[in-house]
Design a protein around this nucleic acid. Structure first.
Lengths: 122, 122
DNA sequence: TTCATATTTGGCAAAATAGCCATGCTCTAT
DNA sequence: ATAGAGCATGGCTATTTTGCCAAATATGAA
């Protein structure tokens, strides 16, 4: 007999669902190509062909990546003529991306400092 | 029409590295248990045993999850006596988590309970 | 020392993910 | 109707992730 019921039983259903949905968003953003595409979408809507040119990956691969982002609700798609345009649906990404950038930069500087490298800030 | 070189050649190295590090952070946050733990850490440092009680998962599983978060730089660990305490290292999470919560709540309301796969048939 | 507690790690099998090719679908133009 | 462009999807394999058990490690207590 288990000492404690596991997380699923411990948490109320709505909270668990919210958590799962949030995790889904993070997971969708957790791939370099997908993050690159999302970052590009901050500058406005793009068709799949644009995003393919950006990442250089196979069209089918790009399409699958976009499906992941779409199902997580990070992006939204809209068909115009023969093209499908993707837009950023998650508004609050800017701040967070900027923050993680700064965070990572600081970490690198810190690490470089510890190793005694004369990293010049550019 | 030359096939473009792939993403790796297209991007300058520092940009690519930053992207990879950012993706690593997102990926680390992209699991319900890990997100739950990180969320709990917003309230202050916790030992592994606390986080195990919280998630209800096996101790070894929790330890592995924490390793993922640690390697992404999301959390930091510190040993005090016989326990190891984990702290949130990524400061800017609050805002983003709140934002995604709101975002998801709105989406749920919008779709009237259709979670997950809800692609609207146009 | 020996023992117990707290945490990590090795190793394994099941599940999920990534990426490619080929194919299918849906427009638009001819 | 046919062709072709732009995307999505089926199907496959290789890789990664997850989660459990068992074993190793470290620390403090008796």
């Amino acid at each position: 007999m288990a000492i404690l019921p596991n997380m699923k039983e411990l948490m109320a259903r709505p909270h668990r669902d919210l958590l799962a949905e949030q995790a889904k968003i993070f997971k969708a953003l957790g791939h370099p190509s997908r993050l690159l595409m999302v970052d590009a979408l901050r500058g406005g809507e793009k068709c799949v062909c644009d995003l393919q040119a950006l990442t250089g990956a196979d069209m089918s691969t790009v399409s699958r990546h976009l499906a992941v982002l779409r199902e997580a609700g990070v992006v939204r798609s809209e068909k115009h003529g023969t093209n499908i345009y993707y837009t950023l649906a998650l508004s609050c990404l800017d701040t967070f991306l900027q923050c993680t950038s700064t965070f990572i930069a600081a970490r690198i500087r810190e690490k470089a400092g510890l190793l005694g490298y004369g990293e010049q800030a550019s």
